[in-house]
Amino acid sequence: MSSPSNAFECRWQGSRLLLAAYFAALLAACATLLLIAVPGWLRLLLLAGCLAHACWVIPRRILLGHASAITGLRRDPRGWQLFSRAQGWQPVRLCPDSMALPGLVVLRFVPQGRWLPRSQCIARDALDPEQHRRLRVRLKFSRRRWAAAVGR
């Protein structure tokens, strides 16, 4: 029996499902801010914070239109790498708390040279079903999936 290839690559696009979920959460947060008893200046400040968060998150994490948005994952002999238009392929270490569920993959990673983890959600509508399945299988069963990437 031959061993499976260690090479893997997938690229995804923006997700309408994540966008709908984000808008529902944003609406709930804004409604809560309008209903609670806080001073008007604080309410406006918190609503502005919600709006600023939406302006930052939607292009970078949900619709993936920003140049720094993570849109691809690759595994090769050097290890795991993530792709963004701004930086190209960058080596990362995947975190053990990454999740691969049938409808959603939550990719937790630490970029090389950093110590704080980051996340990217990949909903089922961001990839074709076969690619999403392959990504989930690769994340669940890949050997040395939590190992740090080898330098260039």
Rank of each mutant, 00 (worst) to 15 (best):
S2Q: 06
S3Q: 05
S3K: 00
N6G: 04
N6Q: 06
A7G: 00
F8S: 02
F8P: 01
C10L: 04
C10M: 02
C10V: 15
R11M: 09
R11C: 11
R11G: 02
W12A: 02
Q13C: 14
Q13V: 14
R16G: 07
L17G: 02
L18K: 00
L19K: 00
L19W: 03
L19Q: 03
A21M: 03
Y22M: 06
F23W: 12
A24S: 11
A24P: 02
A24I: 05
A25Y: 07
A28W: 14
A29H: 11
C30N: 14
A31T: 10
A31F: 11
T32N: 08
T32M: 13
L34D: 10
L35T: 02
L35F: 05
A37T: 09
V38I: 15
V38D: 08
P39Y: 09
P39A: 14
P39M: 09
P39G: 15
W41F: 13
L42Y: 11
R43F: 11
R43K: 15
L44V: 07
L46S: 05
L47R: 05
L47M: 13
A48C: 12
C50A: 13
L51W: 14
A52R: 08
H53C: 09
A54F: 11
I58F: 07
I58T: 12
R60K: 13
R60V: 10
R60E: 08
L64K: 01
G65A: 12
A67P: 10
A67M: 05
S68C: 05
S68H: 10
A69G: 08
I70Q: 00
T71V: 15
G72R: 03
P77K: 05
P77M: 02
Q81N: 02
Q81K: 07
S84E: 05
R85F: 02
Q87W: 10
Q87D: 11
G88A: 10
W89Q: 13
W89H: 09
Q90Y: 13
Q90A: 15
V92M: 08
C95S: 12
L101G: 00
P102M: 04
G103S: 11
L104R: 04
L107S: 05
V110M: 06
P111H: 06
Q112I: 02
G113P: 04
R114N: 08
R114V: 06
W115Q: 14
L116W: 06
L116F: 09
S119Q: 09
I122F: 02
I122E: 01
I122A: 01
A123G: 03
A123N: 01
D125H: 01
L127S: 01
L127Y: 02
L127H: 01
L127G: 00
L127F: 03
P129Q: 11
P129I: 08
R133Y: 04
R134E: 11
R134N: 10
R136D: 04
R136Q: 15
V137E: 12
R138G: 04
R138A: 15
L139Y: 03
K140G: 04
R143G: 10
R144L: 14
R145T: 10
R145C: 09
R145K: 15
W146P: 00
A148G: 08
V150I: 11
